[in-house]
Amino acid sequence: MKRRGKGGGSVFYHEGKGKWVAQLTWVDPATGRKVKREKHCATRREAEQALADMVAAQARGLLTDPSRLTVRDFALEYLRRLEKEGLRPNSIRLAQEELAHALPSLKDPKAHDPLGRMRLQEVKPVHVRGVLDRVMEAGYAPRTVGRVLMRLKALFREALRLELVARNPAEAVRVRLPKGEKAARALEPEEVARLLEAAEASRSKDMALLLRLMLETGLRRGEALALQWGDLDLEKGEVRVWRSWTKAGGKGAFSEPKTPTAKRVVPLPRGLLLRLQARREELLERLTLEEVAGLFLVGGDRPVDPDSFNHYLRRLAERAGLGRVRVHDLRHTWATLALSRGIPLEVVSERLGHASPTITLGVYRHLLEEERRGYVLDLEDLLYPATRAKA
């Protein structure tokens, strides 16, 4: 056995296992308990390097006391902490649903959950990769798998901040979309026309109007559902977005917008403005101006269930022969069409309510790169326009 000084650990050969062992022992100042860490290596040099790494990590406070805390238990604590920090109910619900793809026991404690039952400190990148592969094999889209990985990264990032783990095992894992796969679908102008035609033929005028509003402004579903007629200034031609209608725990509830910049005033296109004015005039035939102002665009005295619009859009898209169209695709369509027609990135970001143009750029970088290929400066055209014209 080769020993270092006090607190330096030791390196020795284990006859029974035929391995070199790096061993470090210290006293946890928080509990007063003696803690021992061992690592088995093939050679003495590897063991000595492993010991040096452990000593350095322990000195920096990164070598945590082995804990029985499981990934599932920490995930439950993490979700409760998000709720205490005031995260929007819908955001918490989405976080739980996406984490549950990797940790099924979050929804059903008896479910088969290899990762959830592992100790938090035992998880390695290979375990994260394995659970993502199982999610993919279950038939979920690559975009969903990417969201699951994002949640696992955030979960272990919190554990790292709390010094419960020495590294984030999810950071080393990557999920790449297959060639041609897009995170969201942007409808072509002809597809938008077909969808709107199907909406005009539907029985619900208010749902059709809400669909057109989302397509022409890029509002999120919750933002659009929370709108009352009093939020629209039809004289100025703008709408004030200041809250969201979401679903949490099976019930609808109002919440703050997703980001501070999501509280915004959005101008209304002329065609949409005329339709809104006509619809308000219909309501004013039987109600006072004050009564109309308190009504929601869809639902009257109370916003409709968020899922109702999802079902409406699905049926509408099938009727229009468009296949599957998701609610977020409407917002993505507006942003794509706006950028492709030269509306500045900063304006698009502001209308979408993004926290910054950087976020918008990250989502639509591919589109902007395609558009920029057409921006070239030809000196021949600039310096000799007459000659080029004759040619």
Rank of each mutant, 00 (worst) to 15 (best):
K6A: 11
F12Q: 03
G18N: 11
W20Q: 02
V21H: 05
T31A: 10
R33S: 12
R37T: 02
E38S: 15
K39S: 12
H40S: 06
C41E: 11
T43C: 03
T43G: 04
E48R: 03
E48K: 09
Q49W: 03
A50D: 00
P66G: 13
A75E: 08
L76D: 05
R80I: 01
R80L: 04
E83I: 08
K84D: 01
G86Y: 06
N90L: 12
R93V: 13
E97N: 07
L106H: 01
K107F: 05
K107T: 12
K107W: 03
K110M: 07
P114Y: 11
P114F: 12
L115W: 05
G116L: 11
L120M: 06
L120V: 02
K124E: 13
K124H: 11
P125G: 11
V128H: 06
D133F: 01
V135K: 00
V135N: 01
E137L: 09
P142W: 08
L152D: 00
L164H: 09
V165H: 01
R167Y: 09
V175P: 00
R176N: 13
R176C: 08
E181R: 05
E188Y: 06
E190V: 12
A193C: 04
A199T: 02
A199D: 00
A199K: 00
S202E: 15
D206A: 08
D206K: 00
D206F: 01
M207I: 00
M214K: 09
G218V: 06
Q228F: 06
D231W: 10
D231F: 12
D233S: 10
R240K: 12
R240S: 05
S244R: 04
K247Q: 14
F254S: 08
F254P: 13
P260K: 13
R264S: 05
R264T: 05
V266T: 07
G271D: 15
L272W: 09
L273G: 04
E282M: 02
E285S: 09
L287V: 06
V292N: 12
A293P: 01
F296C: 01
G299C: 08
V304D: 11
F309S: 00
N310D: 14
L322W: 10
R326C: 02
V327N: 03
D329M: 10
H332P: 12
T336A: 05
L339A: 08
P344D: 15
P344V: 15
V347G: 02
V347R: 05
R351H: 10
G353W: 12
V363L: 07
R373T: 07
P385M: 05
A391L: 14
